[in-house]
C-alpha cells in the first residue's frame, strides 16, 4: 500500500478497523480466575480496613495522650507562686495542743512548720531592724541629700512645734511654712510630745516626719 493511498479519515476504513479491534477483543481470553482474585483482594482489603480501624483509634489516642503530657511538662498550666517574704502577714503562732487524734507524721510536720515560721518571724524582724538602722544612719549623714534630725512634737494654738534634739539643746522650729492640711495629716498620725525623726532636704526644708525609735531626746 503506497503512502499516497493512505486515507486517515476514511470512515469505512475506520469502521473496518473497529470491527477488527472488536474481533481481537472477542478472541482475547480473560483468565478465568481473574474475577475471583479481584473479589478476594477486595474482601481482603475490606477486612484489613475493618481491622485497622480500632488500632488506628488506639494509636491516635495514645499519640494525643503523649502530646498532652509533653505540653503539660514543658509549659505548666499553673505557675507556682513564689512567696515573697515582705508580703507575708506575720501572725502570732498558736501552740499545737490537739495532737491526740493526729497521726505522728502530721504532728511532726506541724511542729517543723511552726519552727520554720518562728525562724521566719525572727529573720524578718532582724531584717526590719537592720533596714531601720541603715535608714537612720544614712539620713543622719550631714552630706546626705535628705537628712534627719530627732525632735519632739508639740502643738500650740493649732500650730505644729518641733523641738529639735541637737547636742542636748532644744531648738524650736515653728512650722509656719507648712500648710495646715499637711499639719493636720501629721498630727492625726503622731501623738503630741512624741519623739520623731524629721526629714530635711539639703535646703533645710521639712520633707517628712517619721515616728522615732528613741523614746526621748536625752
Amino acid at each position: 500500500m503506497n503512502s499516497e493511498n493512505v486515507k486517515p479519515n476514511d470512515p469505512e476504513q475506520a469502521k473496518n478497523w473497529q470491527t477488527l479491534y472488536q474481533k481481537s477483543c472477542q478472541q482475547t481470553s480473560v483468565p478465568p480466575q481473574l474475577k475471583q482474585q479481584i473479589i478476594r483482594n477486595l474482601q481482603k482489603k475490606k477486612t484489613a480496613q475493618k481491622n485497622i480501624k480500632p488500632w488506628l483509634a488506639l494509636a491516635a489516642s495514645f499519640v494525643v495522650a503523649v502530646l498532652m503530657l509533653q505540653v503539660y511538662q514543658s509549659k505548666p498550666m499553673f505557675q507556682q507562686i513564689q512567696p515573697q517574704v515582705e508580703l507575708i502577714e506575720l501572725e502570732l503562732l498558736q501552740e499545737i495542743t490537739e495532737t491526740q487524734n493526729k497521726p505522728e507524721f502530721i504532728v511532726n510536720i506541724e511542729k517543723r512548720l511552726a519552727n520554720y515560721q518562728q525562724q521566719q518571724i525572727a529573720i524578718n524582724n532582724a531584717f526590719k531592724n537592720q533596714m531601720l538602722r541603715l535608714q537612720s544612719s544614712y539620713l543622719n549623714k550631714p552630706d546626705a541629700l535628705l537628712y534627719a534630725r530627732y525632735a519632739v512634737l508639740k502643738q500650740e494654738n493649732e500650730q505644729l512645734i518641733l523641738s529639735l534634739c541637737d547636742n542636748k539643746t532644744l531648738q524650736v522650729l515653728k512650722s509656719s511654712g507648712l500648710n495646715k492640711k499637711a499639719q493636720k495629716s501629721w498630727l492625726n498620725r503622731l501623738q503630741p510630745y512624741q519623739t520623731v525623726q524629721i526629714l530635711l532636704s539639703d535646703a533645710g526644708q521639712i520633707a517628712g516626719i517619721l515616728p522615732s525609735q528613741i523614746k526621748n531626746c536625752s
Partner: peptide, 16 residues
Amino acid sequence: RYAKKHLSKLLPEEHS
C-alpha cells in the same frame, strides 16, 4: 490522525 495514517501504511490492503 497519525495512528490511522501509520496503521494504513502497516496493514496490507486485503487486511484493512
